[in-house]
């Protein structure tokens, strides 16, 4: 990680731990699942990386949404819309699929990816040499890399939340910034 060389990094961008959000303000998003649901498939690792192996095993069989692969970079931004295809039915199926990582489980539609155009723009912003280019396949792979990063963060945050809930701190199932703060150092070392 070349953070020492990163001259474009803006000043300190610390996490601002907010106070806990009340249930009332978030009721719209709680409706889908009861808090604490999914605790049944706890597969806690004792190797100091909680959630990593379980998350990876769920990532591995995840076939990439093929529609993304057919996209040309100049394709429009509308590809965010394919997330609408997830019905609750599929989601419960995916939940059980995560319990048994054996065998390739084909999941219809992975998470909505970061639009390739956006990612390309962000990467080009980061280049110091304005003549530097990035290949399409490389861009797609980078997209997968970032997607894995996000999903890994989510998986570890869920694990952190579970641990906190077991210790008696807030069991409302909402992932908090504090969870992210706890996992960030190890996550960044791993990526």
């Amino acid at each position: 990680m070349s953070s020492a060389k990163n001259t474009t990094r803006k000043g300190p961008a610390p996490f601002k731990p907010p106070s806990r959000v009340s249930d009332a303000s978030r009721s719209a998003r709680t409706s889908t699942k009861a808090p604490g649901q999914g605790q049944g498939r706890q597969s806690r690792d004792s190797n100091g990386l909680p959630g990593f192996s379980s998350a990876r095993s769920s990532l591995a069989p995840m076939a990439r949404n093929t529609s993304l692969l057919d996209l040309d970079i100049e394709l429009d931004d509308d590809d965010d819309e394919n997330e609408e295809t997830n019905t609750p039915q599929q989601n419960t199926a995916e939940t059980t699929a995560r319990e048994t990582p054996t065998g390739p489980v084909h999941l219809e539609g992975g998470p909505p990816p970061i639009p390739l155009k956006l990612l390309a723009r962000l990467i080009y912003e980061g280049f110091e040499d304005k003549n530097m280019k990035i290949g399409k396949e490389a861009l797609t792979t980078t997209s997968k890399y970032i997607e894995t990063f996000v999903r890994e963060a989510m998986a570890r945050a869920a694990q952190e939340r579970k641990d906190s809930a077991e210790d008696g701190f807030g069991g409302d199932g909402f992932l908090q910034v504090e969870d992210l703060e706890k996992l960030a150092p190890q996550l960044l070392l791993d990526f």
């Binding site: 907010p18 806990r20 959000v21 978030r26 998003r29 709680t30 889908t32 699942k33 009861a34 808090p35 604490g36 649901q37 999914g38 997830n86 609750p88 989601n91 995916e94 939940t95 995560r98 989510m154 998986a155 945050a157 869920a158 939340r161 199932g173 909402f174 992932l175 908090q176 910034v177």
Partner: peptide, 9 residues
């Protein structure tokens, strides 16, 4: 979040 049964603030 839908898959894992958690929500995020």
């Amino acid at each position: 979040a839908l898959i894992s049964g958690h929500n995020a603030t």
